[in-house]
């Protein structure tokens, strides 16, 4: 599971973060070292979709927060993934 949008939303679900903190967090919980271009491609798209929003910045580093619509989308996506994961694991165990 390495869709940058889902990784960014999952990271922000745990609290507001700026770019560097998101990369660090994603590497820790997903084992994915996201490049700056990939991260900001996802941030741009998610902000356009209204799933994340910038919050007040204290310096040049811009923190973001997940919106209600973003949470709803993430919940749907992770729910689908969860069903796939459970079905896959069940079938592996059945054999």
């Amino acid at each position: 599971m390495s869709d940058p949008s889902i990784l960014v939303l999952s990271s922000l679900a745990g609290g507001d973060k700026h770019g560097y903190a998101m990369m660090d967090d994603i590497e820790r919980f997903a084992g994915v070292r996201m490049g700056p271009g990939t991260l900001y491609g996802a941030i741009t798209r998610l902000e356009e979709l209204g799933w994340i929003a910038p919050v007040k910045a204290e310096d040049r580093r811009q923190p973001y927060t997940i919106t209600g619509a973003g949470r709803e989308h993430l919940r749907e996506q992770l729910g689908s993934l969860g069903r796939i994961v459970r079905a896959g694991l069940r079938r592996l165990e059945d054999r």
Binding site: Y20, P36, G37, Q62
Partner: peptide, 28 residues
């Protein structure tokens, strides 16, 4: 996004693959 992107590039230890990642991101 320019200022925050630049701040990120300054903060993060650069890797060779970041060059491709940033170039690809710019093209997209």
């Amino acid at each position: 996004y320019g200022a925050e992107y630049e701040a990120l590039l300054e903060e993060r230890e650069p890797r060779v693959r970041d060059v491709v990642d940033v170039a690809w991101g710019a093209m997209k």
